[in-house]
Every structure is written in C-alpha cells, then in structure tokens.
Design a binder for these strands. Structure first.
Lengths: 191, 191
DNA sequence: GCAAATTAATGATTTATTCAAG
DNA sequence: CTTGAATAAATCATTAATTTGC
C-alpha cells in the first residue's frame, strides 16, 4: 500500500539538524490545497489575524508556523506576477501585432486582489474587498471567531469535501482565539 | 520612574488607531545612540536573537518592539548603501579620471559587514564575518542574558550612562562559526 | 530497480522601492 | 525632508523530480 501520506514528519516538524542543514517546511498536499483555495479566492495577502487562522487550520494537517504561511503567500504573489509578466513578454515577442498588453500592475497594496491566474479555473473570483482589519479594538475580540472570518468560510468548504485518505473531518472550533495581550505596537508588522 | 521629560508616548506605546491611523515608533535619542553604536560596530544585520536582546535593551528607554528594531536596521542599511552609491556617483561625476570606482557590492548577504561609512574615521574595520547564529536555546529571556554577548557588551557601555560613544572598536569575536545551524524550522523568519 | 548526479520547484532571506507619519 | 513601516523583486538554499548509469 502506498501510504503516500505516511510520512508524518514531512510536515516539517522535524527540523533537527545536528549537521548544519536547515530543513524547510514541506507543505502537505492538503495544505497546499487550502492555501491555493484561499489565494484563488482573492485573499492574496492576508493580514496577520487571518494568517494565524490559516496557520491553525493548516496545522491540522501537519506542523506549520505562521511565518511559513506568510512566506507562502509572499512567494505565491511574487511568482504569480513574474509568470504573468513572462507570459506577457512572451506573447509580445510572439505576436507580431503592436498590441502590447501592458498590464501594469498598479501595486495597490490592498489585501484582496482579483487573481487573474491565466491557467487557473477562475473558480473563486471574487471579492476585491478592502478589509484592512486593524487591531481590533473594535469588537474583534469576541472569542468565538468574532465576525466574518474568511478562513471560516473556506473551512466550510472543506468540511466533508476533500476526500483525503484517512482524514476525518471533524468540526473545528478554534474559538479560543489567542488574543494578543501584548502591547502591539504594530499590528501588521513583519512579525 | 524616570521622567525623561518629554513625550512619554513618543516611545510608540500608543499606537491605538481607532480611526486607522497608525502612529509609528519614534526612537528616543538614547535608543538611536544604542542602535547606531551597534550598527557602527559592524553588526548591520542582527539575527533574531540579537534583535530581541537589542529590543530589550532599548525598551529601558521607551516602548519598542522587535519589529521596530528590525525595521531600523533594515532602513539603516538601505539608506547607508544608497548614500554611498550617491556619493560614488557624485565622485565619479566630479573626478575627471576614468577611474570608475565600480564598487560592485557582491551581495554578500553576510550579517556582519565592514561599515564603510564615508564620514567615519574608518576605525572599525572589522570583520565581515559570516555568523548565522542560530541560537536555539530560548534562554534569552530576562535580562540575565545568556550565551550571546554582543549586546551585553554594548550594554556595559551604557550601564549607568550613555557615555557618548567614541565608539571604540574593540575586538569583535562574535562566533565566527560559519555553520548555519538552525534547530528551529524557521528560526530567523520574518517574525 | 536502485542510487548518485542533475535539474526543476519552491521555501526562506535579503535588498530595493514605495507609502505615509512627523 | 527625514524616516519608520510595508511590500515587491531578487536571490539564496534546500527539497522533490528527473535523468543517467550500473
């Protein structure tokens, strides 16, 4: 049997390196699915709060840290753009027409952005919402997940969807949101 | 309680933004002194462990977060470089000779770098040591300090008074271990 | 069929650029 | 204008695919 999911340490929980090689996180297929789903839904740059939620969600499938999630999104954005540009350049080189599709990305540092992945199925699509989500002194504390949690919605989709071998979809309730009691000087800093 | 006789909130502890305006950290003169001292000593890109120590040290003079310290060093490096380049360009424009001082920085992403500040007396010179420093022992808590000594050394200078820096360059012997050991999967992540 | 060598993907760092508060 | 904060681009380093030789 190919327990292709057998390696539990693949999640990166083992970074023990007596030598000098730092092991990096290797996301599991399920994790990648979740991440891509979120990304494709338009949240290409989740704020810290959301990132933490995502991490907690991913953690159910393997060890992962907040930074890993952050890196993942960062790299995804960067590479998405690069490929888009390459394709543009490529097309420009191929097409003899003068139609230079100069799709200049306007660097709107908004968090949600319409992902125009070329190859993607374009399932999500959706919302270019501007949710800056600042430290929520405004009522975000509510323990139980507070208000509209983006991640929660996605979780719904996954509860009973992904047919993973050996994964029981239980109802997760990460209500106990680890509120940051520290004096946050900057909510959305680089961590 | 020391009354620094000045803006108390300047430390940045107040970043409450009910509106959405983030107030940014305003380092106190003492803090700047410490930071510059460390920077001038050759540590231009302190690893996380050291950053935390620095933060704790700075915190004695006002609220400050790890990220603030990180940003400060980042901006300092950037600014330093840019100015250097400008000066080079400027000099090149002035000098009629063909000696184009193409000081191509070879992107040695080392943490310690010879600070070639133009104005400085060029004393330091230190060592472009590659020290990845991966701590590992989380015993860096409290002021007790632990293994690291860099910040502590600086602290010595400050213990009692900020005796203006002549910035004496002592012998730096930081680590010098080029082995990149990293127990944690992402010790030096972006926070 | 396997294991070393090579290449392709991609996670993690660092640098350059930009935005905005003071 | 200065400079802290944030992000995107570029780069490095490690892991997975793959090729190659036996």
């Amino acid at each position: 049997m190919e327990d292709h999911g057998g390696q539990e340490d693949a999640g990166g929980s083992r970074e023990r390196n007596n030598e000098g090689v730092r092991s990096r996180w290797t996301p599991k297929p399920e994790q990648i699915l979740i991440l891509e789903s979120i990304f494709n839904s338009g949240m290409v740059n989740p704020p810290k709060d959301e990132t933490v939620r995502i991490r907690k969600l991913l953690e159910k499938f393997g060890s992962v840290g907040d930074a890993n999630v952050f890196y993942w999104f960062q790299n995804r954005r960067s590479r998405s753009r690069r490929r888009q540009r390459q394709q543009i350049h490529e097309a420009a080189a191929t097409t003899t027409s003068h139609a230079t599709a100069t799709q200049q990305q306007q660097q709107q540092h908004g968090y949600y952005q319409t992902t125009n992945e070329s190859g993607g199925g374009g399932s999500g699509g959706g919302g270019a919402i501007h949710q800056y989500e600042m430290s929520g002194s405004s009522s975000s504390s509510g323990g139980g997940g507070g208000g509209g949690d983006f991640v929660n919605e996605h979780l719904c989709s996954f509860s009973g969807e992904i047919g993973f071998p050996g994964i029981y979809n239980g109802v997760h309730k990460w209500g106990a949101n680890r509120s940051r009691q520290g004096p946050d000087r900057h909510e959305r800093n680089v961590w």
